[in-house]
């Protein structure tokens, strides 16, 4: 297996966190993994993205220039990365915040109104996990159980009340038909 993923959106949307959950799950499943964030002064409000690689062979460059999977959580992110997606790649779009469609015809696209779903269900701030749920549903190689186990690892103990919410959000995305 080899998945090269870019997750992109605003700072504060939990972009880096959902990437971290993915690599933790990949590591616990015995894969090679790497996670590389964009970094800089735009801690909040600017753009954020991270490169995630999950592979069965040693990982060379941790930079994903041409993602097989793009998770885009705002319009600038889709604009920036759409052309980079490999042919026959997959795009997951937060359709609450991105009103346009993916123009590429050689990319399989899923539209999830994750920000709206999060807000409607008292899960503001967990649109990232709803997106993640949909990704593991659609992309072979990810298991729901592994992701849930990873969330248990990654959510700090002092935020125990967030654990259930995160898991619920992933499940909501996983079960979203669309």
């Amino acid at each position: 297996m080899k998945n090269e993923i870019v997750i992109a959106g605003f700072g504060g949307q939990g972009i880096l966190f959902s990437g971290k959950v993915m690599v933790y799950a990949g590591m616990m499943d015995g894969h090679q993994v790497s996670w590389l964030p964009s970094y800089g002064p735009e801690m909040r409000g600017g753009t954020a993205n991270c490169s995630v690689i999950i592979s069965d062979s040693p990982i060379g460059s941790p930079i994903v220039n041409d993602p097989e999977i793009l998770i885009a959580m705002n319009l600038p992110s889709l604009d920036k990365f759409e052309d980079a997606i490999v042919p026959n790649g997959v795009a997951f779009i937060d359709s609450t915040l991105i009103t346009r469609k993916v123009a590429r015809e050689d990319v399989k696209s899923f539209y999830i109104p994750s920000t709206q779903m999060a807000n409607d269900n008292g899960m503001t701030g967990l649109a990232n996990m709803i997106m993640l749920g949909k990704v593991i549903r659609e992309v072979p190689g990810f298991e729901l159980d592994s992701i849930i186990a990873a969330i248990k690892k990654v959510v700090p103990a002092r935020k125990a009340e967030m654990l259930e919410k995160n898991i619920k959000a992933v499940e909501m995305g996983y079960n979203y038909e669309g």
């Binding site: 971290k20 690599v23 993994v33 790497s34 590389l36 990982i59 941790p62 930079i63």
Partner: peptide, 10 residues
């Protein structure tokens, strides 16, 4: 360098 410092790996 910044890549190695910022990236996560097992």
């Amino acid at each position: 360098d910044g890549i190695l410092g910022q990236m996560m790996e097992p």
